[in-house]
Amino acid sequence: MAKPHDTSSSIPLVSFSKVACGYQKKVVFQDLSFQLYPRQFAGLVGPSGAGKSTLLKAILGVTPPLAGTISVSGQEVKGKIPSDIGYVPQIETVDWDFPVTVEQVVAMGLYRKSKRLPWITHDEREQIHRLLNQLDIGRYAQRQIKLLSGGEQQRVFLARALIGDPKLLILDEPTSGVDLKTQHAILHLLGEINRNGVTILLTTHDLNAVARHLPWVICFNKRIVSQGDPEEIFTSEILSRTYESEMSVVRKGDVILVDDSPRAGHHFKKHTHHLSEGSSKTHTHTLPEDLGQSHRHEE
């Protein structure tokens, strides 16, 4: 797993300075200052309503700040959409019945760079197919998007974001709505993209996936509660403060397991079980009572 980058010598790619954001009269967060540095791979975690999506929208220039300044690549974002950002929306928001092919969706990502011709040019088609092949979905170029599996669909929208050669990739809940295997594959792929020099910021609710795959995590709930390597900041205390509810964290060597079903005032009890079938090892940790024996460890 890649380690967090040394950020002390870099110029921030994204910079928030005393930013307040909100909608109409409702302020979601205020006085927020933070930086995202080139080549960082960061996850934004926090409960629903914490302001994660608002923060992403502020970086994207869609939600102008009520106060403070936001800069992307050194340019202040003032209601103008920064051009070097690739964005992947939640796949649940996509209209899968829309009659578009994979190629047409990816071509949308070329809008800024295209000559705005109504058809996809030869050069654009080559570029699209090269990227689709890299993402292992080249054979689906002419397929309607609904005909793909969850992981392939996620790759299509990743391709649309990457085709414009962005410096920063923003993903809203890329691991939601897909199975565990696909979740693992997506985060692994994002790790590779990050190693190729693309800065990544994503939101997710899957704390265990974050702990396993991401080198940097920002615990956010209307303010930054903590940020850093998940190995260091994924503690019961920090997560409980972030989620405003009791959270338990189990550690075994390098492996962190978070009970990510917080409930205020929940009764916790000691729980002992075998780590896996055929294993002689057991360990004890606290779990909410109703999870009981149904709780499973993941690799």
């Binding site: 994207l60 869609v62 959409i81 969706v105 949308m108 990502g109 809008y111 800024r112 058809w119 414009g164």
Partner: peptide
């Protein structure tokens, strides 16, 4: 054609892509 297609498909995201 491109503007209309992208805006019809997803206006919010189309805005982000310029």
């Amino acid at each position: 054609y491109r503007q209309f297609l992208f805006t019809t498909f997803d206006a919010d995201v189309a805005r982000i892509y310029g």
